[in-house]
């Protein structure tokens, strides 16, 4: 089975966010990781490989630092990686990314494409679904369980207030929700072998598209940090009194009850 995983490298969720002198998000000294939701996608891909045989190819967009994330995924057991790294791609928006990925993915065979349902940095939750549309294949988001048989998949996915079971034909794009599986640690042997696996860096020209064909659709005008909340009030006193006072405040002052 030819399994593709779309991977993004993001800030660690513990990272403190600051703006640099040009008002952009400061990435100096920030610890970069595989987007946590993409780990579920990688694990599911490896499970499919264990069941059906075949290979897992990672695809990503970014600069050289992304190679760290790709090597870690290779250490987990993926077979090869494609990184689209082009100076023309400067903070690409979701439309651009999806078009680029569609080109990159079209250079290989794929039976199924997996990604995380959302990236913890931009929180957009768009690229994987857009990729499916660009490739003209079905997309299923927020999956909790995946069963593949031949070229059909039965998927349990999360919806508001519950779950839904759907059936689709492959190839398709599926995005992983937390709870799909428990991602494995890369083993010692996996880490040793990762550097020997192919990590192909491709430019836009290599995948057959030029920056002129990728006009941006969304601009970020500026970034800001949230205003810090005012210091709150600690309600003192005996438990019964304090609790009564809290209820009163919520009703009469904050007017939320």
């Amino acid at each position: 089975m030819n399994i593709v995983v779309y991977l993004k490298q993001t800030f660690d969720t513990e990272a403190k966010i600051a703006l640099n002198s040009s008002g952009k998000i400061d990435s100096a000294g920030v610890n970069l990781v595989i987007n946590p939701y993409d780990e579920y996608a990688i694990e599911e891909a490896l499970k499919l490989k264990e069941k059906f045989g075949g290979e897992v190819t990672l695809v990503s967009i970014g600069n050289e630092r992304v190679q760290e994330a790709l090597r870690t995924a290779l250490a987990m057991g993926c077979d090869q990686a494609i990184l689209v790294n082009d100076p023309g791609l400067d903070n690409p928006d979701e439309w651009v990314k999806a078009e680029v990925l569609a080109k990159a993915v079209s250079t290989i065979s794929y039976d199924i494409i997996l990604g995380g349902r959302i990236a913890v940095d931009d929180g957009s939750s768009q690229v994987a679904v857009r990729l499916a549309d660009a490739l003209n294949i079905p997309s299923v988001t927020s999956i909790l369980k995946l069963e593949v048989e031949e070229n059909k998949a039965t998927v349990t996915r999360e919806i508001d207030g519950g779950t839904e079971i759907v059936e689709i034909s492959l190839p398709a794009v599926l995005t992983a929700q937390k709870g799909l599986n428990i991602p494995r640690y890369p083993s010692m042997m996996g880490i040793m072998k990762a550097k020997k696996k192919e990590l192909k860096v491709m430019s836009l020209a290599d995948i057959g598209i030029s920056i002129a064909e990728l006009p941006g659709k969304m601009n970020t005008l500026d970034y800001s940090l949230p205003s810090s909340r005012k210091a709150g009030i600690k309600i003192a006193g005996e438990v019964a009194d304090a609790t009564r006072e809290l209820a009163r405040i919520l009703r009469e002052e904050a007017k939320v009850i």
Binding site: E68, R71, T72, A75, Y185, P186, M188, I191, M192, A194, K195
Partner: peptide, 13 residues
């Protein structure tokens, strides 16, 4: 890079 990856893996574990 390998040692960095190993440290991270064992630390997470």
């Amino acid at each position: 890079e390998d040692h960095v990856m190993m440290r991270k893996m064992v630390r997470d574990f």
